[in-house]
Each structure stands twice: as C-alpha cells, then as structure tokens.
C-alpha cells in the first residue's frame, strides 16, 4: 500500500531528517518528496511505500502523529487511495 504523508507547521531545522528517520525505522520506503516553505510555514507531502513495513498502517499513523507532536508540526499519514478517489477520474 502506498501512503501520502502531509507535514505542515512552523519551519525549523531537521524536520525532513526526523520524519525520514522514523519512516526508516518502520521500514517504510520514501518514493517522492515535495516540499516548500511559504512565509516561514513548512509544507511537505511525501509519497511512501509500506509494502515491506514492519508495522500496521494504524501504528504507523500513530507513530507519525506522535513524532509531529514532538517536533511541533502536524503530520498526517493516509492511504493514497483517498487522494486518487477524490482527484482522479
């Protein structure tokens, strides 16, 4: 299953590093990263593959949410299916 992670919040050093690190721990492979900073606001969307992950999607979601709280940004992790349904015909 492929995942979409959205990370938004105030910009600071090390967000990508910490997020990537946590994903690696769960054996989730990053496929694509799209990131920008607008007026000091950090926006990132990551596409990742969890076929070989060592956790369930629910645990991955909870782990990323917790990490977001530690860093001070909001991290959401969802199956890409909802985006395909909504934005592709």
């Amino acid at each position: 299953m492929r995942l979409v992670l959205t990370i938004v919040g105030e910009d600071k050093v090390g967000i990508i590093a910490k997020v990537s690190n946590k994903l690696a721990e769960m054996n989730i492979n990053v496929i694509n990263v799209n990131q920008n900073i607008l007026n000091g606001f950090f926006n990132m969307v990551m596409l990742a593959d969890m076929d070989k992950a060592n956790v369930s999607i629910k645990d991955a979601r909870d782990a990323m949410k917790k990490l977001g709280e530690e860093i001070g940004v909001e991290i959401r992790l969802q199956s890409e299916e909802i985006f395909i349904a909504m934005h592709r015909i």
């Binding site: 959205t6 938004v8 799209n34 969307v45 596409l47 890409e80 985006f83 395909i84 909504m86 592709r88």
Partner: peptide, 17 residues
C-alpha cells in the same frame, strides 16, 4: 501516481477544517 500539492492539501483541509 504523483499528486499536485494543492490537491493533497485540499483533501486534508476538508477533513481537518
């Protein structure tokens, strides 16, 4: 499949806000 950033954030805003 790659997505447009605006599309992704539109969806998450629909849910969160």
């Amino acid at each position: 499949m790659l997505f447009n950033l605006d599309d992704i954030f539109e969806t998450t805003r629909m849910i969160t806000e």
